[in-house]
Simulated assay, not measured.
Amino acid sequence: MKIRVHYGFMALLVIVLASCSKSNTNKIANNWSVVSSEEEQTSINEDGDKDYTRTSYTETTISTHSESTPFGEPTTFQESSGKVSANFLNIKKDGTWIWNLEYTFEGIQGGMQVYTNIKTIESGTWNFTGKTKGDDFKKNERIAFNILKKSTSVFQYQDQVLAYSNGNEASYLTGENMLIYTIVKSKKNELQLEQEKNNQSTMNGDVNTYKSTRNMTLKAQ
């Protein structure tokens, strides 16, 4: 079984959210649990090749659906599902934060039961962004999360025997790897976030188009 691993919040994203009310530190600072999250990513290159991925989380499950469509060829599909053991975001009043995400995929490979465990930990500093002239955002409607440290570990077991392991750690300067959020809904015990991102890049003369959206609900622990 081929498994595609998707790391939430592992790359630089700009998350744009429409806010219905102002937020403040007392509403944001909390131990949050991600109770639902759905992300869609679409990539199209100049040759017409298209890739699409949807990743969905509940409090206890993760599922992925991937489609790959080379230009002029049939679409191939990939499905996977697993269990979530941790998906917690701790935002502190002192301006720091830490995100813990851990999940496990299970399947059959070569007649053996295979478990793949993925764990990521990210941490850094956060602050409300200032209002930029000409934008539509009000005070305290957007938050900047600076990722200062990130660690990833992957363990794969075959019939309960460790067959593969890999881990890495990275450090970043302030502003080098940053997420920008706007708040859709902000209550003492609930946050709702929504992402939309569109960009184009050129590599070796080829133009690549990328689009992603994410809807996420967090509840206080």
Rank of each mutant, 00 (worst) to 15 (best):
C20K: 12
N146C: 01
E39M: 13
T125N: 10
Q109N: 14
V34P: 00
T69S: 00
Y57V: 04
N100W: 04
E79M: 11
Y103K: 00
T152H: 12
Y157W: 10
Q200K: 12
K219G: 05
V114F: 02
Y103N: 01
L101A: 06
L162R: 01
S123C: 05
N166G: 13
S186T: 07
V35C: 04
Y157D: 01
V16L: 12
K83M: 10
T116Q: 06
T209S: 01
N177P: 07
E46N: 02
G134Q: 05
G107C: 08
D159H: 02
V5W: 06
I15F: 11
N24E: 09
N168I: 15
M1Y: 07
Q160T: 15
N146A: 02
N26I: 11
A163W: 05
M203L: 13
T25C: 06
A29R: 01
M203A: 14
V14R: 10
G82D: 00
L218V: 02
E176L: 04
Q200T: 14
M203Y: 07
N199I: 08
T60W: 05
S186W: 04
L193S: 03
K185A: 14
L13D: 11
E38M: 08
F71N: 01
T202N: 08
K2A: 14
K27E: 13
T42D: 00
N87H: 09
I143M: 06
K131E: 11
M112G: 08
T125A: 05
R4G: 14
V34R: 04
L101G: 04
Q221P: 10
S68D: 00
G134A: 06
